[in-house]
């Protein structure tokens, strides 16, 4: 034979055909995979754009009538066609911030415990439980808030906090019911904890064993290892996790609407009723028809979207700016 190097498949026409058929199938498979994934990605973008468009569009009349003053005005009187988001914005910011300030340290401690301190048996039991906490539907948590947490807050926590810290205006005198900004904040705290805890646990688990050994071989205590090595090398991730929790708190509607009391004024005391953007929308949207009322509720949605967008961007920016590698290279 003059071409002994030719592979057998090329000499056998049937095999060669089969091969080219398979190649063609491979090519089609590749295209198909690419196409499906691209379509899915486009779908996600389209949904975001459509939602954004609908919300802004729906808010149009309210935006043109109230302008940016909507953000600061507190009156919300549907009968007189007067709407303002001031107290709702206030309620949203206060409850979410409160939830984050109280929840993040607890959640990070849980993460540290589960990743570095807990014996294996405890870890195996508690870890899934923490994740299950995130799986509780918010309406159920709201029920619990109404039936258990609010009475408890009203009967025990409010008098105690007022007695001990009453000189601080935010701990005013107890109110008639437990429905308040304070109770809503506690519910939100419970909701953000599992998110932050499970993410930060995974972050701490990913800290190289080498580094921890290196630190403890220098006679460092457990706390010194955590403070000196574990937390610094995960700080950006922990902050991003906290902002993810904040996102959840900002957008939570049902559970908050159940315990917040639907008040319509900015009050100094945390024990007074209040309301949040999301809870107000959930509460009142079903009863409205087209018009300024509904448009104002859409406007609340626009504010909520913008806040969510900002917190997301900040989380991403922090993730990049203070990432492990970034911190090292600075």
């Amino acid at each position: 034979m003059s071409t002994p190097a030719a592979p057998p498949a090329l000499q056998n026409p049937r095999a060669a055909r089969a091969r080219s058929r398979r190649k063609k199938a491979d090519r089609i498979g590749d295209r198909l995979l690419f196409g499906i994934c691209l379509a899915a990605a486009i779908l996600a973008i389209a949904v975001i754009v459509l939602i954004g468009y609908e919300v802004v569009n729906g808010a149009g009349p309210a935006i043109s009538k109230f302008g940016l003053g909507f953000l600061v005005h507190q009156d919300w009187q549907p009968n007189f066609k007067i709407f303002g988001a001031g107290s709702l914005l206030f309620g949203t910011v206060v409850t979410s911030t409160f939830a984050l300030l109280l929840g993040a340290p607890i959640a990070i401690s849980i993460g540290l415990y589960l990743s570095l301190l807990a014996p294996a048996g405890v870890r195996g039991i508690v870890s899934p439980l923490v994740e299950m906490l995130a799986a509780i539907p918010s309406v159920i948590l709201g029920f619990w808030g109404v039936l258990v947490l609010a009475p408890f807050v009203h009967e025990h926590m409010e008098p105690w906090l007022h007695g001990a810290f009453g000189f601080i205006p935010i701990f005013g005198s107890p109110e008639t019911t437990g429905a308040s900004i304070f109770t809503a904040s506690l519910i939100l705290t419970i909701m953000v904890i599992p998110i932050i805890a499970s993410i930060s646990r995974d972050l701490f688990l990913a800290v190289p064993r080498d580094l921890q050994d290196g630190a403890s071989a220098l006679g460092a205590t457990r706390w010194e290892v955590v403070r000196g090595v574990v937390l610094p090398s995960t700080s950006s991730g922990v902050v991003a996790a906290s902002l993810l929790g904040l996102g959840r708190a900002l957008g939570e509607a049902i559970a908050v609407s159940q315990v917040v009391g639907a008040g319509s004024a900015i009050q100094t005391s945390l024990f007074k009723t209040g309301d949040t953007l999301a809870a107000r929308i959930a509460n009142q949207f079903p009863g409205t028809g087209p018009g300024l009322y509904q448009s104002s509720l859409f406007y609340l949605g626009v504010i909520l979207l913008v806040i969510g967008l900002i917190s997301n961007l900040v989380a991403q920016w922090i993730g990049r700016r203070f990432s492990y590698e970034g911190a090292v290279a600075r």
């Binding site: 190289p208 080498d210 403890s216 071989a217």
Partner: peptide
């Protein structure tokens, strides 16, 4: 054990400087 390691230092196979 912290006191033990304070007196008995250790250097590992793979260099493991802190990211500091």
């Amino acid at each position: 054990q912290v006191e033990v390691r304070r007196r008995i230092g250790m250097v590992f196979q793979k260099p493991n400087p802190f990211p500091k």
